[in-house]
């Protein structure tokens, strides 16, 4: 099948380094200007029926891209099926909620804590769970996602079903204020985080952990025979994915100023997973495209309000049947080896 990713890669490789850097700069500038894309007469069709285009751009689109990239490290790079990714997002969000309302720390100071707690929980869950084979890992992570939600629902420190109200917004950075109805600032913060995560993934991919993950994904037994320490590298992948989710959660809580257990259901985990499989597993650009489409689509089709989830389910079904490798599949050479491995 026609593989856009390989075409893009061959064009990219034919460019000289200055052309590459200027292209990257142009793309970054264009994306950074995205919050204003809905301001010019005809482009107001980007506004969704309920919320403004700018609001949708921050949540769900930008946050889903961030979470998709995080989950992609776990599922796409190292082949570990995680069905409870929302747990780490929730841990980040509740860290922000609890510490933001009870201590005087601000969002930027809490961010490292959120990442730390998400990583810690990833480590604690991963230590027993990552010894298990694929499908068992799926059910254990799924259960973990539910546990976090149930615990948040039943503890008093998390406000039970009412959640936490009045989570503080971040203080201004470089003159950029963060207010409830000002979405551009949040978008830029998340955009910077996305760029950092992309950079991190690209660095990892060409270095030792990336090679270890690739080996684990293609064939665990062979990887173990070649001396890859399975548990250690799986744990790394799991905790790094968790860290990204936790960071997303902190920003999310700080933006919405209110969190409740209902926001962290199994559906969110599934949606993020669907984003990355839909866009193209293991491929950064595929994940970004998939997450943007799947996050925007349900908001856009709100005019068929009641049936939108139905349409969403059918879209997943049809696209997976037509393009099983996603819209932008991973590199051909990686895919061929994957087929042989199965």
């Amino acid at each position: 099948m026609f593989n856009i990713r390989d075409k893009g890669a061959s064009v990219w490789e034919s460019w000289s380094p200055p052309a590459r850097s200027s292209f990257v700069l142009i793309v970054i500038t264009l994306v950074a200007l995205l919050p204003y894309a809905g301001n010019f007469g005809p482009t107001s069709f980007l506004d969704t029926p309920i919320s403004s285009y700018q609001a949708v751009l921050v949540y769900p689109i930008a946050l889903f891209v961030l979470m998709g990239l995080g989950l992609n490290i776990v599922v796409g790079k190292s082949g570990l099926l995680d069905l409870g990714y929302v747990a780490f997002f929730a841990i980040g969000a509740y860290t922000m909620g609890i510490m933001g309302t009870m201590t005087s720390l601000n969002t930027w100071q809490i961010l490292p804590f959120g990442i730390f707690f998400a990583m810690l929980s990833g480590l604690l869950l991963g230590l027993p769970a990552l010894r298990l084979r694929g499908d068992y890992l799926a059910i254990v992570t799924l259960g973990f996602g539910e546990i976090i939600r149930i615990v948040a629902l039943n503890l008093s420190v998390t406000g039970g079903p009412n959640g936490i109200v009045g989570v503080p917004t971040p203080p201004a950075v470089l003159g950029q204020k963060f207010e409830l109805d000002d979405h551009a600032g949040y978008f830029w913060v998340i955009f910077i985080m996305i760029l950092l995560v992309i950079w991190m993934i690209r660095r990892f991919t060409i270095r030792r952990p990336g090679r270890a993950w690739e080996a684990i994904r293609q064939d665990e037994d062979v990887a173990a025979l070649m001396g890859v320490n399975l548990l250690v590298y799986k744990l790394w992948s799991f905790t790094i994915g968790a860290a990204v989710g936790g960071a997303g959660g902190v920003i999310y809580a700080s933006k919405t100023m209110f969190i409740a257990p209902d926001m962290f259901t199994f559906n969110t985990s599934i949606l993020v997973l669907a984003c990355i499989v839909f866009g193209g597993l293991g491929n950064i650009w595929g994940v970004i495209v998939g997450a943007s489409i799947l996050a925007y689509l349900p908001e856009r089709i709100r005019f068929i309000s009641n049936a939108r989830q139905l349409v969403f389910g059918l879209v997943l079904l049809v696209i997976m049947n037509v393009r099983p490798d996603g819209l932008l599949p991973r590199k051909k050479r990686e895919k061929i080896r994957e087929k042989q491995a199965i």
């Binding site: 099926l81 599934i270 997973l273 669907a274 499989v277 839909f278 389910g313 059918l314 879209v315 997943l316 079904l317 049809v318 997976m320 049947n321 099983p324 490798d325 996603g326």
Partner: peptide, 8 residues
Amino acid sequence: ATLISAIG
């Protein structure tokens, strides 16, 4: 892919 299709 099959898993997502089943989820769909």
